[in-house]
Design a protein around this nucleic acid. Sequence first.
DNA 1: AAAAACTAGTTACCATGAAACTATCCGGAG
DNA 2: CTCCGGATAGTTTCATGGTAACTAGTTTTT
Lengths: 201, 201
Amino acid sequence: MPTPRTGSPLALTVLALLQYKPLHPYGIQRLIKQWGKDKVVNVGQRTSLYRTIDRLITAGLIRVRETERDQAYPERTVYEITDVGRAVAREWLLDMLAMPKQEFPEFPAALSHLLMLAPQEISDALERRVRTLSEALAGLEAEISAETGHGLPRITMLEAEYLRVVTAAELQWLRSVVDEMRNGELTWSAADLVAFAESPE
Amino acid sequence: MPTPRTGSPLALTVLALLQYKPLHPYGIQRLIKQWGKDKVVNVGQRTSLYRTIDRLITAGLIRVRETERDQAYPERTVYEITDVGRAVAREWLLDMLAMPKQEFPEFPAALSHLLMLAPQEISDALERRVRTLSEALAGLEAEISAETGHGLPRITMLEAEYLRVVTAAELQWLRSVVDEMRNGELTWSAADLVAFAESPE
DNA sequence: AAAAACTAGTTACCATGAAACTATCCGGAG
DNA sequence: CTCCGGATAGTTTCATGGTAACTAGTTTTT
C-alpha cells in the first residue's frame, strides 16, 4: 500500500480534521470554512474533497465509521482516521514545512512577458493589482487583530501572518516598480528587445 | 470559438515565443530553458506542452506553418501565431497582471496544521526550510547580478526581482518565527487547543 | 566500444478544479 | 400560504495539469 507520494493541502487538512473528530464530507467542508482554513485550502466545490477521501480510503489512512441516515436527507458517511493516517499526516506535514515545493504561480510567469505590452499598459495593470492587493492585505490584518482580540494563541494564525508578510512584500515591490515606471527611472527601448532575443545565453 | 477562459502560464508563454518566431514544440521547450523561463513556467515533461498546443490550435490562436522532416529524425511540426492569438495573448497578460488569482500553495496550508506537531519538530523543520530557501535566494541574486553585468535591461528580469523579494520576505519571517520559538517567546499549551476547537466563530 | 545526453514525440494514468445537476429541507419575505 | 434563497449532501462531466515511462534515432563523452 504505497501511500500517495504527494500529500496535497486538502488531503492533509482532511486528516487533520478527522484527528479532531470523525466527520462526514460535508462536515469537513463546513469545519474548513468555520475555521477560516478556506483561505489556504481549496474546498470551493466538494468534487476534489470526495475524490481526496476516496484516495485516503484506498490508502488506508482513513476508514468508514458509520453511515447515518437522517430521514429523507441524503446518506452521510462518517469517516475516521486510522493509526497509519495519523502517522502519515505527521510525515506529510513535516515534509511540507521543511522542503519548499517548486510551484508555478501565474504572476511571475506573466511578468516575464512584459515586452509584449506598452509601458502605459503595464503600469495601469500593475496599479490595478496594487489596489486589489491592498484590500486583501487590509482584510488579512483585520482578521489577525480580530483573532488576537479574541484571545486566540498566535500559533493558530501563523498562516495568516505568513500571507500578510508575503503580500506586504509583493505590494511594496509593486509600488516601487509602478513609481519607477511613472517617473521614467524604469524604461527600455525596442533595441533592448533585439539584444535580448539575440543573447545566446 | 470561445477562447479558453484561463490563459495558463504555459499557454501564454507559447504565444509569446511564437510571436518572436515560428517554432516546433521541442524548440519552444528549448527556448524556455535557454531564456531561463523554466523558473516560472513548468515544461519539465513535454506532455502538457503538446496538450497546450492542441488547445491553442483548436482555439485558433496558433496554426501549423509547415511539417519538416530532417531525415531519420522524428517529424517536427512548426507552428506560428495567428492575429487572434496575438490579441488574446495581450488580453491574458493584462488580466494576469492586474487580477491576483487565488492560488493555494502548500506551505501556508501546512502552517495551519502546526498543532499536530511538537514545538521542537516545528522549529527543526522550519530551520531546514530556512537553509533551502537561503540557497535559492543566493541563486536568484547571483542570476540577477550576472544578467545585470551582461548588460540586459532591467525589464527582462522583473520576474527574478519579484521572486527575490517574496523569497526574502518569507525567509525573514521564517527566521523570526524560529528565533521566537527557540527563545520561548512563541509558545502554546494544550489548553489553547481546546479553546481553539471550542471557539464557535 | 559503451554510456550518457540530446532530439522528438506518444501513451497512460492520476490529480485538480470548475460547473452544473439532483434532491430535500428550512426560514423568512411577501 | 407560497415562493425564494440558502443550507444539506452528493454526483457527473469536462478541461487542465503533472508524473512517469516508452519508442527510437543521434551525437557527445568517457
